[in-house]
């Protein structure tokens, strides 16, 4: 079977072949095909710019792979900020000896995800490191998007606003961890990894009352809520009973001693919106398969950045950022 060789990263013939035969073909991008040192792109006046690196282990997991993740991650960052994702750059760091077949699968998946999301891959790079100095495939993506009129601004958050989560919490983290721990549940837990710009961009365009959106990746929903509350200088009150979980994810987290509120999500967003439009926004999100479990989970109170959780019994506790043991290489 073909494997990645150090020579695939030397800038010579093999590098060229790799680019032409895998990346240009799988990404289906005319700009990339020009093979220039940079790409000239047309973009609106104000642009959003984001970057993210992906080192997830294993590179293939139920519900996705590192290629889909690398595309969706940056697309979602651009979208929740309040822009229409347009172009991506994709850089690979490959470990010598990685099966070529794995790279092709990852590139194909990244290309398919980009086409689904309507973003063009405009630039790329490939480096190869010696065996043992990396772990199969690492990817960095950067992306630009056209800024929309309305975009995420924490200072717009008002007391009385509603807090929405776009679906079940913790799926990606639970999928990776249960896969790594070798734990088999009744059915395989799938990562939620997906680009969401087809849901998020229309929301920004339709509702002025959306104050802020954010994707709860590493650190999970808990950490993201705390970050937003602190930036907005408001308290959040979350109702534990309203939090949507897949029962399998909840069980898996329990077996492994983890709180699903701190597990990573790769296909979810949190939105803080004017309470008057909360119902409409949730209904809109629920029309998409990626958002069928969307729910209002809480409200904004006067305060200074605490996230309070009302338990089903009626008691209150604080929700903090992730401070304990971090789970490495989740994305």
């Amino acid at each position: 079977m073909d494997k990645i060789l150090l020579a695939h990263g030397d800038g010579g013939l093999l590098t060229h072949r790799l680019i032409e035969e895998i990346f240009v073909r799988e990404f289906g991008s005319d700009i990339l095909g020009e093979m220039g040192d940079a790409a000239g792109i047309e973009c609106g006046k104000k642009i959003a710019f984001a970057t993210d690196s992906f080192v997830v282990s294993p590179i293939f997991f139920p519900g996705g792979d590192i290629g889909k993740l690398a595309c969706a991650g940056t697309v979602n960052d651009l979208s929740v900020y309040g822009s229409k994702p347009r172009f991506l750059s994709v850089s690979f760091i490959l470990e010598e000896g990685t099966p070529m077949e794995d790279l092709i699968k990852v590139a194909r998946s990244l290309g398919e995800t980009a086409r689904f999301a309507g973003v063009k891959i405009a630039a790329g790079d490939t480096k190869v490191v010696e065996k043992g100095k990396g772990d199969k495939i690492y990817i960095n993506t950067a992306g630009v998007g056209e800024m929309l009129d309305n975009f995420s601004q924490a200072h717009k958050i008002k007391t009385g606003d509603a807090i929405i989560v776009s679906g079940n919490i913790g799926d990606h983290g639970a999928a990776i961890i249960s896969r790594r721990a070798g734990i088999d549940f009744e059915s395989v837990i799938k990562s939620d990894c997906a680009p969401l710009n087809h849901i998020i961009v229309p929301l920004w365009e339709a509702y002025e009352g959306i104050r802020l959106m954010r994707d709860p990746t590493r650190g999970g929903v808990a950490t993201t809520l705390k970050e937003i509350a602190m930036q907005a200088s408001k308290d959040f009150l979350i109702y534990e009973e309203l939090l949507p979980f897949d029962p399998q994810v909840r069980s898996a987290a329990e077996v492994l001693g983890l709180d699903p509120l701190y597990l990573a999500n790769e296909g979810k967003f949190i939105a803080v919106v004017d309470a008057a439009i909360a119902g409409e926004v949730v209904n809109f999100i629920r029309r998409f398969p990626e958002g069928e479990n969307a729910a209002v989970i809480g409200e904004v109170l006067e305060g200074r950045g605490d996230v309070k959780v009302k338990t089903p019994l009626g008691g209150t506790k604080l929700l903090d950022m992730l401070t304990g043991e971090q789970l490495p290489r989740i994305c």
């Binding site: 009302k310 338990t311 089903p312 019994l313 009626g314 008691g315 209150t316 506790k317």
Partner: peptide, 9 residues
Amino acid sequence: ISQTGIRDL
């Protein structure tokens, strides 16, 4: 006891 809200109640 904290997690369930019992401490608070």
